[in-house]
Protein backbone atom coordinates (compact mmCIF):
# COMPACT_ATOMS: atom_id res chain seq x y z
CA UNK A 1 0.00 0.00 0.00
CA UNK A 2 2.78 2.33 0.89
CA UNK A 3 4.25 1.83 -2.56
CA UNK A 4 2.14 4.74 -3.71
CA UNK A 5 4.03 7.03 -1.38
CA UNK A 6 7.35 8.38 -2.52
CA UNK A 7 9.52 10.97 -0.86
CA UNK A 8 7.84 14.33 -1.15
CA UNK A 9 9.61 16.95 -3.13
CA UNK A 10 9.26 20.60 -3.86
CA UNK A 11 10.15 20.33 -7.51
CA UNK A 12 7.73 19.48 -10.23
CA UNK A 13 8.79 16.85 -12.74
CA UNK A 14 8.20 19.20 -15.62
CA UNK A 15 10.56 22.09 -15.11
CA UNK A 16 8.72 24.22 -17.63
CA UNK A 17 5.77 24.22 -15.26
CA UNK A 18 7.98 24.55 -12.27
CA UNK A 19 6.47 27.88 -11.42
CA UNK A 20 8.17 31.21 -11.13
CA UNK A 21 11.28 32.03 -13.06
CA UNK A 22 13.99 34.14 -11.43
CA UNK A 23 12.61 37.43 -12.70
CA UNK A 24 9.07 36.57 -11.77
CA UNK A 25 10.33 35.42 -8.38
CA UNK A 26 12.07 38.75 -7.83
CA UNK A 27 8.97 40.59 -8.94
CA UNK A 28 6.82 38.65 -6.51
CA UNK A 29 9.38 39.16 -3.75
CA UNK A 30 9.31 42.89 -4.40
CA UNK A 31 5.51 42.89 -4.16
CA UNK A 32 5.47 40.84 -0.97
CA UNK A 33 8.02 43.14 0.65
CA UNK A 34 6.03 46.13 -0.59
CA UNK A 35 2.98 44.69 1.14
CA UNK A 36 4.96 44.28 4.35
CA UNK A 37 6.21 47.86 4.21
CA UNK A 38 2.69 49.16 3.59
CA UNK A 39 1.52 47.06 6.54
CA UNK A 40 4.27 48.52 8.73
CA UNK A 41 3.27 52.01 7.71
CA UNK A 42 -0.16 51.38 9.17
CA UNK A 43 1.50 51.62 12.54
CA UNK A 44 3.55 54.77 12.07
CA UNK A 45 4.14 55.60 15.70
CA UNK A 46 5.20 52.09 16.60
CA UNK A 47 7.49 52.13 13.59
CA UNK A 48 9.01 55.47 14.64
CA UNK A 49 9.70 54.14 18.13
CA UNK A 50 11.31 51.00 16.75
CA UNK A 51 13.43 53.07 14.45
CA UNK A 52 14.59 55.43 17.18
CA UNK A 53 15.17 52.72 19.78
CA UNK A 54 17.24 50.64 17.36
CA UNK A 55 19.37 53.70 16.64
CA UNK A 56 19.79 54.39 20.36
CA UNK A 57 20.80 50.81 21.12
CA UNK A 58 23.50 50.94 18.46
CA UNK A 59 24.70 54.26 19.85
CA UNK A 60 24.85 52.93 23.41
CA UNK A 61 26.75 49.85 22.27
CA UNK A 62 29.26 52.06 20.51
CA UNK A 63 29.60 54.21 23.59
CA UNK A 64 30.18 51.14 25.75
CA UNK A 65 33.11 50.10 23.58
CA UNK A 66 34.48 53.63 23.74
CA UNK A 67 34.21 53.70 27.54
CA UNK A 68 36.19 50.48 27.80
CA UNK A 69 38.89 52.15 25.77
CA UNK A 70 39.05 55.03 28.24
CA UNK A 71 40.49 52.60 30.76
CA UNK A 72 42.53 50.40 28.50
CA UNK A 73 44.25 51.98 25.57
CA UNK A 74 43.87 48.97 23.40
CA UNK A 75 42.07 45.68 23.10
CA UNK A 76 44.34 42.88 21.99
CA UNK A 77 46.70 45.57 20.68
CA UNK A 78 43.89 47.12 18.60
CA UNK A 79 43.00 50.77 18.94
CA UNK A 80 39.52 52.17 19.47
CA UNK A 81 39.21 53.12 15.82
CA UNK A 82 40.16 49.67 14.67
CA UNK A 83 37.73 47.93 16.99
CA UNK A 84 35.06 50.42 15.92
CA UNK A 85 35.58 49.35 12.32
CA UNK A 86 35.17 45.75 13.43
CA UNK A 87 32.01 46.66 15.30
CA UNK A 88 30.70 48.70 12.40
CA UNK A 89 31.14 45.99 9.80
CA UNK A 90 29.53 43.29 11.89
CA UNK A 91 26.63 45.54 12.88
CA UNK A 92 25.87 46.66 9.35
CA UNK A 93 26.10 43.08 8.12
CA UNK A 94 23.85 41.73 10.87
CA UNK A 95 21.24 44.42 10.65
CA UNK A 96 21.02 44.03 6.91
CA UNK A 97 20.63 40.29 7.22
CA UNK A 98 18.11 40.73 9.97
CA UNK A 99 16.09 43.08 7.82
CA UNK A 100 15.99 40.71 4.88
CA UNK A 101 15.67 37.43 6.75
CA UNK A 102 13.34 38.36 9.55
CA UNK A 103 10.69 36.12 7.95
CA UNK A 104 12.90 33.29 9.13
CA UNK A 105 13.26 34.74 12.62
CA UNK A 106 12.66 31.56 14.65
CA UNK A 107 10.38 33.17 17.23
CA UNK A 108 8.09 34.73 14.64
CA UNK A 109 8.21 31.72 12.37
CA UNK A 110 7.35 29.35 15.21
CA UNK A 111 4.30 31.45 15.92
CA UNK A 112 3.33 31.28 12.28
CA UNK A 113 3.63 27.48 12.21
CA UNK A 114 1.48 27.20 15.33
CA UNK A 115 -1.24 29.41 13.91
CA UNK A 116 -1.29 27.67 10.57
CA UNK A 117 0.44 30.49 8.71
CA UNK A 118 2.79 28.04 7.13
CA UNK A 119 -0.14 26.00 5.81
CA UNK A 120 -1.36 29.15 4.16
CA UNK A 121 1.99 29.59 2.46
CA UNK A 122 1.99 25.96 1.33
CA UNK A 123 -1.39 26.51 -0.32
CA UNK A 124 -0.08 29.26 -2.57
CA UNK A 125 1.64 28.38 -5.85
CA UNK A 126 4.93 30.15 -5.18
CA UNK A 127 8.23 29.03 -3.65
CA UNK A 128 8.18 28.47 0.09
CA UNK A 129 11.52 30.16 0.77
CA UNK A 130 10.49 33.17 -1.25
CA UNK A 131 7.21 33.44 0.58
CA UNK A 132 8.76 33.11 4.02
CA UNK A 133 11.31 35.77 3.07
CA UNK A 134 8.45 37.95 1.91
CA UNK A 135 6.28 37.21 4.91
CA UNK A 136 8.00 39.74 7.14
CA UNK A 137 10.38 42.59 6.68
CA UNK A 138 12.18 44.41 9.46
CA UNK A 139 12.73 47.86 8.13
CA UNK A 140 14.13 49.19 11.45
CA UNK A 141 16.79 46.66 12.36
CA UNK A 142 21.85 36.24 10.29
CA UNK A 143 20.37 34.82 7.47
CA UNK A 144 21.59 31.21 7.46
CA UNK A 145 21.28 30.82 11.20
CA UNK A 146 17.75 32.17 11.14
CA UNK A 147 16.77 29.58 8.58
CA UNK A 148 18.24 26.78 10.67
CA UNK A 149 16.51 28.12 13.77
CA UNK A 150 13.18 28.29 11.97
CA UNK A 151 13.54 24.82 10.60
CA UNK A 152 14.07 23.42 14.09
CA UNK A 153 10.69 24.95 14.84
CA UNK A 154 9.13 22.19 12.73
CA UNK A 155 10.16 19.68 15.37
CA UNK A 156 9.87 21.66 18.54
CA UNK A 157 7.03 24.06 17.67
CA UNK A 158 8.42 26.25 20.40
CA UNK A 159 11.37 27.91 18.80
CA UNK A 160 14.60 27.29 20.58
CA UNK A 161 16.18 30.25 22.22
CA UNK A 162 19.52 28.50 21.87
CA UNK A 163 19.92 29.64 18.29
CA UNK A 164 19.98 33.22 19.54
CA UNK A 165 23.29 32.48 21.24
CA UNK A 166 24.75 32.08 17.79
CA UNK A 167 22.92 34.93 16.11
CA UNK A 168 22.86 37.76 18.61
CA UNK A 169 25.62 36.28 20.78
CA UNK A 170 27.78 35.76 17.71
CA UNK A 171 27.28 39.35 16.75
CA UNK A 172 28.49 40.51 20.19
CA UNK A 173 31.48 38.18 20.04
CA UNK A 174 32.50 39.39 16.66
CA UNK A 175 32.46 43.04 17.69
CA UNK A 176 35.88 42.64 19.28
CA UNK A 177 39.12 41.25 17.84
CA UNK A 178 38.83 37.48 17.55
CA UNK A 179 42.40 36.81 18.71
CA UNK A 180 41.59 37.79 22.31
CA UNK A 181 39.41 34.70 22.66
CA UNK A 182 40.34 31.23 23.75
CA UNK A 183 41.45 29.07 20.79
CA UNK A 184 38.49 26.75 21.33
CA UNK A 185 36.08 29.63 20.94
CA UNK A 186 37.93 30.83 17.88
CA UNK A 187 37.71 27.43 16.31
CA UNK A 188 33.98 27.39 16.95
CA UNK A 189 33.56 30.71 15.15
CA UNK A 190 35.79 29.54 12.33
CA UNK A 191 34.39 26.12 11.58
CA UNK A 192 30.96 25.79 13.19
CA UNK A 193 29.53 29.28 12.90
CA UNK A 194 32.08 30.76 10.54
CA UNK A 195 31.71 34.34 11.71
CA UNK A 196 35.41 35.21 11.60
CA UNK A 197 35.25 35.42 7.83
CA UNK A 198 32.48 37.97 8.00
CA UNK A 199 34.44 40.79 9.56
CA UNK A 200 37.58 39.84 11.48
CA UNK A 201 39.53 38.41 8.58
CA UNK A 202 38.71 41.22 6.12
CA UNK A 203 39.33 43.92 8.73
CA UNK A 204 42.71 42.42 9.70
CA UNK A 205 43.66 42.52 6.07
CA UNK A 206 42.28 46.01 5.52
CA UNK A 207 44.18 47.43 8.48
CA UNK A 208 47.35 45.66 7.44
CA UNK A 209 47.41 43.86 10.77
CA UNK A 210 49.23 40.66 11.44
CA UNK A 211 47.15 37.48 11.09
CA UNK A 212 47.39 36.41 14.71
CA UNK A 213 45.19 33.36 14.64
CA UNK A 214 46.59 31.74 11.53
CA UNK A 215 43.66 32.05 9.17
CA UNK A 216 45.88 32.07 6.11
CA UNK A 217 46.26 34.54 3.23
CA UNK A 218 43.00 33.67 1.49
CA UNK A 219 40.84 34.18 4.57
CA UNK A 220 39.96 37.85 3.93
CA UNK A 221 38.31 36.92 0.65
CA UNK A 222 36.48 33.84 1.81
CA UNK A 223 33.45 35.56 3.31
CA UNK A 224 31.19 35.34 0.23
CA UNK A 225 32.01 31.67 -0.29
CA UNK A 226 31.67 30.71 3.33
CA UNK A 227 28.40 32.62 3.41
CA UNK A 228 27.18 30.85 0.30
CA UNK A 229 28.06 27.42 1.69
CA UNK A 230 26.37 28.21 4.99
CA UNK A 231 23.30 29.40 3.11
CA UNK A 232 23.16 26.31 0.90
CA UNK A 233 23.51 24.13 3.98
CA UNK A 234 20.78 26.06 5.78
CA UNK A 235 18.41 25.84 2.80
CA UNK A 236 19.00 22.10 2.48
CA UNK A 237 18.14 21.74 6.14
CA UNK A 238 15.08 23.93 5.58
CA UNK A 239 13.81 21.68 2.77
CA UNK A 240 14.36 18.67 4.95
CA UNK A 241 12.31 20.40 7.65
CA UNK A 242 9.49 21.18 5.22
CA UNK A 243 9.29 17.48 4.32
CA UNK A 244 9.13 16.60 7.95
CA UNK A 245 6.35 19.13 8.38
CA UNK A 246 4.38 17.60 5.53
CA UNK A 247 4.51 14.20 7.11
CA UNK A 248 3.76 15.17 10.68
CA UNK A 249 1.70 18.29 10.45
CA UNK A 250 3.78 19.92 13.14
Amino acid sequence: MSSAIDAPSESAPNSKDRGLGVLEGLDLYRRLIGAQIRSLMQYRISFAFDFISTGLITLVECAAVAIVFQRFDSLGCWSLGEVALLYGTVTVAFKTMEMLFVGFDPSGFGESVRLGGFDRIMLLPAGLTLQVLGSRFALHRIGALYIIGSTITFWTIDSIEAINIFTYGGQEMMSVPMHIYHPLMRRFFTFVVPGVFLNYAPVVHLLGREDQIGLGPTAPYLAPFVGLIAMIGALAFWRFGVRHYQSTGT
Binding site: A12, P13, D17, G19, L115, G117, L123, A126
Partner: peptide, 17 residues
Protein backbone atom coordinates in the same frame (compact mmCIF):
# COMPACT_ATOMS: atom_id res chain seq x y z
CA UNK B 1 4.31 15.74 -4.61
CA UNK B 2 3.63 18.51 -7.07
CA UNK B 3 2.71 21.18 -4.59
CA UNK B 4 3.07 24.33 -6.67
CA UNK B 5 1.36 23.10 -9.78
CA UNK B 6 -1.35 21.46 -7.78
CA UNK B 7 -2.27 24.31 -5.45
CA UNK B 8 -2.59 26.62 -8.47
CA UNK B 9 -5.64 24.56 -9.43
CA UNK B 10 -7.42 24.43 -6.13
CA UNK B 11 -8.91 26.90 -3.73
CA UNK B 12 -8.93 26.28 -0.01
CA UNK B 13 -10.35 28.09 2.98
CA UNK B 14 -9.45 26.74 6.38
CA UNK B 15 -12.02 27.91 8.90
CA UNK B 16 -10.72 30.43 11.33
CA UNK B 17 -7.53 31.32 9.52
Amino acid sequence: RERRRYVARIGAVFGQR
